[in-house]
Simulated scan of single mutants.
Amino acid sequence: MNKRRLNVLYIAHEGHMGGATRSLATLAKLIQERGHNVTVALPFKNSEIRNELKKNDVETIVQFYTWCQYPENEGEFVKRIYQLGYWLNIFFEKKLYRKIRKRQFDIVHTNSSVVDIGIDLSHQLKAKHVWHFREFGEEDLGTKYVRGKEKSMNMINQTVDKVIFISEAMEKHYADWIDAEKRQVIYNGIGNEYLYEKEGREDKEKVVFLISGALQRGKGQACAIKAVSILKSQGYDRFKMVIAGRNIANYENILREMVKEEEVEEFIEFRGFVEDMRTLRRECDVELVCSLKEAFGRVSVEAMMSSNPVIATKSGANPELIQNEENGFLFEVENPKELAECMAKFLENPQLIVQMGKTAFERAKKTYTAEKNAVEIENLYYQILERKQ
């Protein structure tokens, strides 16, 4: 295999540093450090992702473009806006192509299933197209394809060279749409800066649970609040729960109202969006992942890297990451009673936090590093290009 220097164009789908975009920033940095020429196309100039890439001297090209999916539950007007934006992408794609047409890109790598401009760009640039599917879509984001799922998936399957799925659960979900030879599972990689091995547990007065991620229904914060209410009714009082995440569509107001109704204000603390999650995790003991369906579970891996055991739903990729009673516990989706039972196990026996935390740390360090992820993706690039010759 001829491992020459590659020219890679990444296509981002958002401006803020959500989980998928943090993964992109790390991947672009590491692929560049491995000797390749990296450029990242961004839809917004003033954005968190652009600032992060600049810190690492990664080249960016800014050209507005829109999603090929729309949010299902935000009304007909919003749907029409997304539909209009999608068809205007024909114009936006041409502008982006004019900016990069003289470049000899080998790979166009789309970072999310919600943007599809990589289809035409890769064809025009005569480059191979790798597409990262990091979302289930309807099940986790609550989005639908503008052109309809069947037509969109057929187009993807006919044009893409490889689809990277971030979990076996995701690959299985899309197996009916994407040919087997075009599917590849590569787990997300998390940077070593998240690694923090706790030697033991300080003699804390309270066990601190953390649930982090965007504040929206699909992330399951409401289930966690109900579990706290159950624990209170059972007489547990030596704990608190921290809720951290970006407020989506004012969902935080709904959660705060629920906290009042359940009369658990003394047990729950809202932190809002937290820039420095590593420091917050060192303050916490156990993390909750209550999502309806998690495509991978970056939050789970970051928790494990911080030596925190995880209580997660038995859905999506969670059972691939969390081994029940080894590095955490699993519970049924939207079952606050079962979640409360799992939380109570740590309250009854805090030493489990140390034991499971060590297991979680070792597994994450071995399996989910950013370096491992970058090497696997680099090898995939070479395999695709070798088939071309």
Rank of each mutant, 00 (worst) to 15 (best):
Ser113Asp: 02
Lys126His: 12
Trp131Met: 00
Val130His: 00
Lys126Ala: 08
Val163Ser: 00
Asp203Ala: 13
Asp106Ile: 09
Ser113Cys: 08
Val185Tyr: 12
Glu139His: 10
His132Lys: 00
Tyr187Ala: 10
Asp116Trp: 01
Ser152His: 14
His129Leu: 15
Gly200Arg: 09
Gly189Glu: 04
Val108His: 04
Trp177Cys: 06
Phe133Pro: 03
Asn192Glu: 12
Glu168Tyr: 15
Asn188Cys: 06
Arg147Met: 14
Glu150Gln: 13
Val146Phe: 07
Gly191Trp: 05
Val130Glu: 01
Gln184Gly: 02
Ala175Tyr: 12
Leu125Thr: 01
Met170Thr: 09
Lys198Phe: 05
Ser152Met: 06
Glu181Gln: 11
Lys204Val: 01
Asp116His: 03
Tyr145Ser: 09
Leu125Gln: 04
Glu171Ser: 15
Ser113Thr: 09
Val108Gln: 03
Met155Glu: 15
Ala175Phe: 14
Asn192Ile: 01
Val207Ser: 11
Trp177Gly: 09
Asn111Val: 11
Gln124Ser: 13
Leu121Cys: 02
Lys204Asn: 02
Met170Val: 15
Thr159Cys: 13
Ser167Glu: 03
Glu205Ile: 09
Glu193Arg: 09
Gln158Val: 08
Phe133Val: 14
Met155Val: 13
Thr110Met: 03
His129Lys: 04
Tyr194Gln: 02
Ile178Tyr: 07
Glu168Val: 11
Lys144Tyr: 10
Glu139Arg: 11
Asn157Gly: 00
Glu193Trp: 07
Lys206Asn: 09
Phe105Lys: 05
Asp161Glu: 11
His123Thr: 14
Asn111Arg: 08
His129Pro: 02
Val130Phe: 10
His129Asn: 05
Lys172Thr: 12
Asn154Gln: 13
Ser122Gly: 01
Leu121Tyr: 02
Glu199Pro: 08
Thr110Gln: 09
Ile166His: 01
His123Met: 12
Ser122Ala: 14
Asp161Arg: 03
His173Ala: 07
Ser152Thr: 13
Glu139Asn: 11
Gly118Glu: 10
Met170Phe: 05
Phe105Gln: 03
Gln158Glu: 12
Asp116Cys: 02
Ala180His: 14
Phe136Lys: 04
Phe136Ala: 07
Val114Asp: 02
Val115Ala: 02
Asp120Gly: 11
Gly200Trp: 13
Gly118Gln: 07
Leu195Gln: 06
Val114Asn: 08
Thr110Phe: 09
Tyr187Trp: 13
Asn154Ala: 13
